[in-house]
Write a protein that binds this DNA or RNA. Structure first.
Lengths: 138, 138
DNA sequence: TTTTATAGTTAGAAAACTCTAACTATATTT
DNA sequence: AAATATAGTTAGAGTTTTCTAACTATAAAA
């Protein structure tokens, strides 16, 4: 296996593991795996409407409606009616719903901590520069 | 937001997105999200028994049994009876089951490709060295 | 302005997911 | 050897997830 691919795989696995641990901590017993998935997708899409969410989830609209109704009832998201198109509404995360993202943040911070622990300051700056170059838009 | 954390978050999001796209490609319509999750956990644990799998999934043993029975019926995993403890059996991935990991591999290779596209050879070697140092055991 | 398309909803049914309680078989402890 | 613990199974019930078909309301096109 190529060295670079191996390193990425390792990084990815570790971050995944840290996110799993974070979710255990945050104790989302209130949500099923499926509901968590809808919530994360809403977060990723950024206030989608029902049609957009259903498309991204590869589900029908009635199925998606059942899911969002549960998330609304449990106070993880709320509806905002669209002014431009009065047929439509967009889903927003509540304060409680936004906690989901904290599990990602937590894992990312933890990984940053591991990196600072293993590399000296010069190396950290170098790594930052390299990663920034990879994701720079152009 | 700290620069390093931001870079990790970006990397993590991109890899996640690539994995999602890979799953769409591989077309696992045969599996529900839940079943996919059991299968990935079995893969991560490496031939766990029912008790170990249930613990990792935070589910009861009967629930876990229902799930693995479905995966066996669909030929994603199979049982291997333990010689040491005759009450027990371990789950192994079939060839078909191992395809799941390919979605991860695919995403990691794609990310490696993006990196090679944005960095020159010297920078790639540097990045490899830094990541290796982070994950070196000691 | 009538027709067609789009956004979302409702109803009802099937499959998947999850649990508790009670059980069998094998291992371990006393 | 008897008592206790562990690995897994079975049965049955409640909840969640998913679909198709049919509907309302608004927007866009003809």
């Amino acid at each position: 296996m190529e060295k670079l691919v191996e390193a990425i795989a390792r990084l990815s696995r570790e971050i995944g593991h840290m996110e799993g641990a974070a979710k255990d901590q945050f104790d989302f017993k209130e949500l099923t795996l499926t509901q968590m998935n809808y919530l994360e997708t809403i977060s990723n899409l950024g206030n989608p409407n029902l049609t957009e969410l259903a498309a991204e989830m590869h589900m029908t609209k009635p199925t998606t409606k059942v899911a969002v109704d549960k998330l609304i009832e449990k106070n993880f998201i709320f509806r905002v009616k669209s002014d431009e198109d009065r047929r439509s509404a967009h889903f927003h995360l509540t304060v409680k719903g936004k906690l989901i993202n904290r599990t990602h943040d937590f894992a990312h911070k933890q990984m940053a901590g591991l990196i600072r622990q293993k590399l000296d300051e010069t190396e950290v700056v170098l790594l930052e520069m390299l990663l920034e170059k990879v994701f720079r838009i152009q």
